[in-house]
């Protein structure tokens, strides 16, 4: 007999979550033997780089443009932000190649693949809005070049790359929120479905 407590949405949600993702699956003690390969390290490298991107971005947001343009510490943190983004994309693209060639969408992992694709596109948007938010000649050049492309698509009315305030807000609020949320979903799907095995292991 189901009680009133069993019918509560909180109880049902908890049961579903624990059933789909028990703690030993969320933080497993061991990984399959095939994961012991360098090609499997690029996902977590991307994740580590993202953590540095977010942390240095928070420092830049706290201190502001004058600090990152004029002080040596500001230059240093600004460079950390840039170079962690470089490593982020470097590792993410190798992760993408590895997963593409092992057809990582196999075994019901379609949503892991799709969230990864959307995350990749979101990251490109975050990178682009970062480049046009630098408040220097570089960002002016990039935004004036990009405006023609975006206007040609008809998107300029909604996404104006010459509007620094709008680009900065996309860069420091909307896109990071989307990227972090998508990363969480992506990693949860990896944990639910497990790391994709090589073709020979699947047979």
């Amino acid at each position: 007999m189901t009680t009133e407590i069993d019918r509560q949405w909180t109880t049902r949600l908890r049961k579903t979550v624990v059933e789909k993702l028990p703690p030993e699956k969320l933080l497993p003690d061991t990984q399959p033997a095939y994961v012991a390969s360098w090609i499997y390290v690029f996902g977590v490298t991307t994740l580590a780089a993202l953590a540095i991107v977010i942390a240095t971005g928070c420092v830049l947001a706290m201190k502001g443009p004058l600090w990152w343009h004029l002080s040596s510490t500001g230059h240093f943190v600004n460079s950390l932000h840039l170079w962690s983004v470089e490593i982020f994309f470097f590792a993410m693209v190798i992760h993408l190649w590895g997963k593409y060639f092992m057809a990582a969408w196999r075994g019901g992992r379609q949503l892991t693949w799709v969230t990864g694709v959307v995350l990749f596109l979101t990251s490109i948007g975050a990178g682009f809005t970062g480049y046009v938010s630098q408040t220097n000649y570089d960002s002016q050049w990039i935004s004036t070049q990009a405006k023609d492309g975006i206007n040609a698509t008809g998107g300029g009315a909604f996404f104006n790359v010459l509007n620094l305030g709008q680009m900065l807000m996309w860069h420091i609020v909307l896109l990071p929120l989307a990227a972090v949320a998508l990363t969480a979903v992506h990693v949860i799907y990896v944990r639910i479905k497990g790391v994709v095995p090589p073709f020979e292991e699947e047979k």
Binding site: P28, T30, Q31, P32, S37, W38, I39, V41, W97, G98
Partner: peptide, 18 residues
């Protein structure tokens, strides 16, 4: 990418399989 496919991963033989 090619190095990641070819280079041996340290401690691979001693790993316990999960």
């Amino acid at each position: 990418f090619i190095s990641a496919l070819l280079l041996p991963f340290p401690g691979k033989r001693n790993r316990k399989e999960g």
